[in-house]
């Protein structure tokens, strides 16, 4: 059996990753403005995790998106589709111009990642709580077939409300799926309220640990730390790994940060210009 070649870049180039994350945020903001689509803050919240994954961690080849040995990345919080679409286009899975068709009639880029339609999208998400069970199945398929790829699932904190997440968490621990890594985008907001005032997530790291995971808290905007932690999967603990990433919803644009109106709102042209200034983009 072939064994996937690990991405061996030992130390992430943090400056380059930071610049990339800013570019990604810019693209997401542009898309949101053009389509007047919701979930901008949700997409900005996880932009650093996406950058770390796609520009440092994942063993992937955009020219060969169905390579059986590729690492799997599942955007389980599918409502951050703009972040995924922008990432995949920037990585070359499809032409960057196709981003202009986001939310347009007849296109491939609806407001959530589609099934069997767009190269690089591993699973259709958008109904929360599906990504991790799918990821466990993928990991087991790899184990059975002797392909030791890794599986990364990016979950939102609100998604941790779903029972299916915890069913999968117990399953993964029992199966010792040490090549599975969950990143929780812990931005403390859900769709209509603060996360911990909706269902009690805290102490979230302890919960994942109690469910049998090697669970760590991490700064979800420290792209270098994210890259190192994710790159280190499997990390020798013999357990699946949960990275509880503390984040700020709307991160990167001061007037969007931690303001949940931006779960729904799209920016005006003027606000795009302001955002680009803050991100150091032109």
């Amino acid at each position: 059996m072939n064994v996937a070649v690990r991405n061996t870049a030992a130390k992430p180039d943090v400056a380059a990753l930071k610049a990339q994350a800013a570019k990604l945020r810019g693209k997401i903001i542009e898309m949101s403005h053009k389509a007047q689509a919701a979930h901008l803050a949700s997409s900005l919240s996880c932009a650093d995790a996406m950058t770390a994954a796609y520009w440092h961690v994942l063993n992937i080849d955009p020219k060969n998106p169905t390579d059986p040995q590729r690492d799997r990345f599942i955007l389980s919080k599918g409502h951050a589709a703009a972040a995924l679409f922008a990432t995949l286009a920037m990585k070359g899975y499809f032409p960057i111009e196709e981003l202009d068709t986001y939310c347009q009639d007849g296109g491939r880029l609806a407001e959530h990642p589609p099934a069997n339609l767009l190269p690089g999208v591993e699973a259709a998400t958008g109904s929360l709580g599906h990504g991790l069970p799918l990821g466990c199945g993928m990991a087991l398929a790899g184990r059975i077939k002797g392909e030791n790829f890794r599986v990364f699932a990016l979950l939102s904190d609100g998604e941790n409300n779903e029972g299916s997440v915890w069913e999968a968490a117990m399953f993964a621990a029992a199966q010792k799926l040490e090549n599975v890594c969950v990143v929780v985008d812990y931005n403390k907001w859900q769709a209509t309220a603060r996360s911990n005032e909706t269902l009690m997530l805290a102490p979230l790291r302890d919960k994942w640990a109690a469910f049998g995971w090697d669970a760590h808290e991490i700064d979800g905007h420290d792209v270098g730390a994210l890259a190192e932690a994710m790159q280190n999967i499997p990390n020798g603990s013999g357990k699946p790994v949960a990275l509880i990433a503390h984040t700020v919803k709307g991160k990167g644009v001061s007037f969007m940060e931690d303001d949940n109106n931006w779960h729904y709102r799209a920016p005006t042209a003027e606000e795009v210009v302001k955002s680009f200034k803050e991100l150091g983009l032109s």
């Binding site: 689509a37 407001e111 959530h112 990642p113 099934a115 259709a124 998400t125 109904s127």
Partner: peptide, 10 residues
């Protein structure tokens, strides 16, 4: 299809 734009999950 009231939320058509959100895709088949919705």
């Amino acid at each position: 299809l009231a939320y058509s734009g959100l895709g088949p999950t919705h």
